[in-house]
Design a protein around this nucleic acid. Sequence first.
DNA 1: CCTCCAATGTCAGAAACTGACATCAGCGTA
DNA 2: TACGCTGATGTCAGTTTCTGACATTGGAGG
Lengths: 186, 186
Amino acid sequence: MSRWEPGSQGRLAEAAAELFLERGYEATTVADIAARAGVTERTFFRYFADKREVLFGDPEAYNGVFTDAIAAAPATATPLDAVAAALRAAGGFFVGRHPHAGIRQRIIDANPALQEREQIKRLHLTEAMAEALHARGVPDPTARLTAELGTVAFHLAFVRWVTAERDSDLGALALDVLAELRAAAA
Amino acid sequence: MSRWEPGSQGRLAEAAAELFLERGYEATTVADIAARAGVTERTFFRYFADKREVLFGDPEAYNGVFTDAIAAAPATATPLDAVAAALRAAGGFFVGRHPHAGIRQRIIDANPALQEREQIKRLHLTEAMAEALHARGVPDPTARLTAELGTVAFHLAFVRWVTAERDSDLGALALDVLAELRAAAA
DNA sequence: CCTCCAATGTCAGAAACTGACATCAGCGTA
DNA sequence: TACGCTGATGTCAGTTTCTGACATTGGAGG
């Protein structure tokens, strides 16, 4: 066996979620999290840039779901079509994670510092989608505008989905919201 | 004369902007800012909740420009019309501040922590506009969707405006972007 | 002249983060 | 087998942000 239990990063993330739920984000120190995960505080900061980051997964993987779908959309698809495909694909990312997402969202909603982090992730997603549209030959400002529409629609759909008691099809919900958005802009 | 020079808050904000520009945000400590403003560190934290906040003005005043315009829109105005009126009004808020806004934006763009704060302010503006629409009798999800459209348009217009070498009419620019957004959603 | 108050100062401390260096199980290699 | 290297972790000291508690005092108002 190895010198230490493997999977420190995962244990830290789990311990953090548990403690944030039990005592709240502010009342939990990084030392607490590290102790529950069986490592030192220093190890926490080797895996996570800061205390907030422990609640957020790999952005490459997450944003990739959207950008891959945009890249994979047929050449005939309009920018908005490509974004719609991304929203549908992103719905798949959350399949089976409704309970977990609900808990995580309650933690975030209870703390302004975490909401800031969430918003900046949303901005980065928008930028990644705009970049993916550029790669399809969509110029600015259309690319950026379409990406913004997509992020707004997904965000609002996500709020509805995660707030609801029962699980549902997030991808379909996102397409609904996108349609509502088009109507609101009409 | 009074016991201390009046206007501590303003001096702190000025000192902070100067130092952030000279050395960068991270390389500037709150103690540095306080020293330049001629007060103690503790006084800084009496006026600003944290180090980032010193770059952001009173959100009530700022958001109020948007929400007042929404409230003042004629009863016949559609939700999107009311939001458009808000964007035009918000343009007035920045008249004569182009140089200052440019400097401030360079500081923010150079630091992720400040970008987070900027994004959360944007979210709060969206929520305030949605609230102002509710007060006009606009129900959700229309209110929230329209508010999102308005914030997106204003944000993108602001980026264009502040990035440009020469000053221009931000309000008009915002209405242009809103029109582009409608086209992108069509 | 007295009293109260608002703005500031002083001080101690918790918690978040960072840099530098130490440790050591297990791996590959001679 | 012995040896040396590496990667994950530990240890430790230090800086900075932010907070709570209490002290100070010039000036306004009675």
